[in-house]
Design a binder for these strands. Sequence first.
DNA 1: TAGACGATAGCCT
DNA 2: GGCTATCGTCTAA
Length: 207
Amino acid sequence: MTLPEALPREFFLQPTLAAARALLGQTLVRRFEDGDIATGRIVETEAYRTDDPACHAFRGETKRTKTMFGPAGHAYIHMNYGLHYCLNAVTSPVGCAEAVLIRAVEPLAGLERLHRNYFGDGVPPFDADLPIDKRLGAGPGRLTKAFGIGPGLEGTDLTDVSSGVYLAVGEGVADAEVVTTTRIGITKGAELPWRFYVAASRFISRR
DNA sequence: TAGACGATAGCCT
DNA sequence: GGCTATCGTCTAA
């Protein structure tokens, strides 16, 4: 399979809210160590800005948030609730810490590999004839599990097709299909309408 | 160095 | 709809 073209660095230098909106309809590409490829269409994102109390970097740079203060277009991956990893794309220049959280994707390619990552070799067995299981992409902790994204990929350059994970040019999404709403699962800044999703997608974590 | 808590998901009722 | 597992990081002492 030919690898899709990566998004350019400038994409991640647009204002964070614009980048969160623009990431809908783009493609998440995962290249596994053994050469397997899996891709997904991004259908849900959230913006986190440095002036935002819900942003991990709100209180300044720490060991955890170091990559958010680094160059745009890199992956900020963190664990929360001691159980799940979340994938973010850094969207601000060096010294400024903003990012877009990828909350949901629609699996496009590498379905069997995603299924195995998520469920192991157990149940339910993979069946290419069934509709794609929503758990492979609908939720920030789920997509990282299915795509095998963990702390080992922290800081990865998402604009480089040779990276283990990167973001590629997709078909985009028309404005009429996009819903803008408040963010999920946070207590601070929860009223800010900084979550975007594709209305028609099955793979939305919450409506 | 201890204590609190969080950008969730899965299982139970 | 409610409950809770589980751990890295931050914060205060």
